[in-house]
Amino acid sequence: MPALDREDNEITPLTICRLGQKGCDMAKVHGHVQGHQAVISTDRLPSDLSLSEIVLRLYRSI
């Protein structure tokens, strides 16, 4: 199910490509449940990968 904003419009996931377009090559991800956090380089990640997928991958690797 897609994420929605307050007006029920679908929110486009933030991808590695969109981060690069904004001049970002690093991402800080934070898991609220267990309090883990990491700063990762996005240079070698697939451009279509979303930040939410990165968080899930990190969560599953801990």
Rank of each mutant, 00 (worst) to 15 (best):
M1T: 03
M1S: 04
M1V: 02
M1N: 05
P2R: 03
P2C: 11
P2N: 06
P2V: 09
A3W: 09
A3Q: 10
A3P: 15
A3E: 15
L4G: 05
L4T: 09
L4E: 10
D5Y: 04
D5K: 08
D5S: 06
D5I: 00
R6L: 06
E7Q: 09
E7H: 09
E7W: 11
D8Q: 13
D8K: 07
D8H: 02
N9Y: 07
N9C: 11
E10G: 11
E10Q: 14
E10A: 14
E10D: 14
I11R: 08
I11V: 13
I11S: 07
T12L: 15
T12W: 13
T12V: 13
P13M: 08
P13D: 09
P13A: 10
L14H: 03
L14G: 00
T15E: 07
T15C: 06
C17E: 05
R18W: 13
L19V: 11
G20L: 12
Q21N: 01
Q21T: 00
K22N: 01
K22T: 00
G23Y: 06
G23L: 08
C24N: 09
C24M: 05
D25V: 03
D25G: 04
D25N: 05
M26T: 11
M26L: 08
M26K: 12
A27M: 11
K28A: 12
K28I: 15
K28T: 10
V29P: 04
V29I: 03
V29H: 01
H30A: 12
G31P: 01
H32Q: 08
H32D: 14
V33K: 08
V33H: 10
V33I: 08
Q34K: 01
Q34L: 02
G35A: 03
H36C: 10
H36D: 11
Q37T: 12
Q37S: 13
A38P: 03
V39L: 02
V39P: 00
V39T: 05
V39F: 02
I40Q: 04
I40G: 04
S41H: 11
S41I: 02
S41Q: 02
T42S: 07
T42C: 02
D43N: 14
D43K: 14
D43T: 14
R44C: 13
R44F: 13
R44L: 14
R44G: 14
L45T: 02
L45G: 06
P46E: 01
P46V: 04
S47N: 10
S47H: 07
L49S: 11
L49H: 08
L49Q: 11
L51S: 03
S52I: 04
S52N: 05
S52E: 03
E53C: 03
I54Q: 04
V55W: 04
L56H: 12
L56I: 09
R57E: 15
L58V: 07
L58M: 10
L58R: 09
Y59W: 09
Y59S: 13
Y59N: 12
R60W: 11
R60P: 08
S61K: 15
S61Q: 10
I62C: 10
I62T: 15
